[in-house]
Design a binder for these strands. Structure first.
Lengths: 151, 151
DNA sequence: GCTCATTTGTCCGTATGTATC
DNA sequence: TGATACATACGGACAAATGAG
């Protein structure tokens, strides 16, 4: 669970994995305010700030965290995270307009979250017109909705 | 034309602008081999490697440059650059299957290149099946061709 | 409005490891 | 082998945004 200085994995990736785990087990959570500052993480893990920043940047790209300059880094609520992932995949063409989304179960398993979170994310994106549901057929990517970053 | 240490723009963006200009005026060109090394650029502009790297990374994302690990950073031939930009836009949905491409003139103006380069890029992508032309109607994005990175 | 501490953003210099030629 | 270049990591510095007072 610690950091292996000698392993083949870069330190920043290992650190990202540790932080991701803490998000998953609730040690870091949206309602608890920001995660420890970069300086605090340097202190705890005995690594440089640039290394911490690399890890945090990676988790931002996964939408697990959201960093705000001058305030701190926050855990993204799970449903928002899932919604952001879906929007990303639409924007890079992994999911395409007119095509069905993977099943809730598949998304939940892949992202290692509950189906409720996936359902909530889909509900959000449906309200925004990014997705739409066809009775008995599944959820589809809508046409032409310029994927609006949520909030 | 130089680097303004005090301006509001990050240095790496300014440096990227300078390099882009040198590409445009032919100081750096594909047939001249790799652009100067990171160390040389650091030396010339008095900035750190990380800053140079940020600038070069940005230009890679624009397809102006292409970095090859262990070899160096090269100027992308203009027609390849335009082709790469078009492929990117298809993959993010800016250009969509079945829809017409903007006119050659519009693309040339926007990308600040000659119409010949745009024409050449379109020819490449047509050969690859990414685009197709309808007599008297224009050039369209083809269906289903998984945008193959050129080369 | 102002100052101040906290936090993130950018940058620098350096060092080591690895890939390519 | 040696030269060149990128990837990662360190430690330090100052700037910019935020919020508390």
């Amino acid at each position: 669970m610690g950091i292996d200085l000698l392993g083949p994995d870069p330190i920043y990736r290992q650190l990202a994995a540790v932080i991701r785990k803490r998000v998953n087990d609730g040690t870091y959570a949206p309602e608890r305010g920001p995660i420890p500052s970069e300086a605090a993480l340097c202190e705890e893990f005995g690594v440089s700030r640039n290394t911490v920043r690399s890890a945090v940047r990676a988790l931002n790209e996964e939408h697990v965290l959201r960093t705000v300059m001058g305030r701190g880094t926050f855990v993204n609520p799970i449903d928002r995270r899932i919604a952001a992932v879906i929007v990303d995949r639409i924007s890079v063409g992994t999911y395409r307009p007119g095509r069905a989304l993977p099943s809730e179960a598949a998304l939940a398993k892949e992202q290692d979250v509950g189906r409720d979170s996936v359902r909530s994310a889909i509900a959000r994106l449906t309200e925004d017109g990014v997705l739409h549901t066809v009775e008995g057929q599944g959820t589809f990517v809508s046409q032409r909705e310029d994927a609006a970053p949520h909030e």
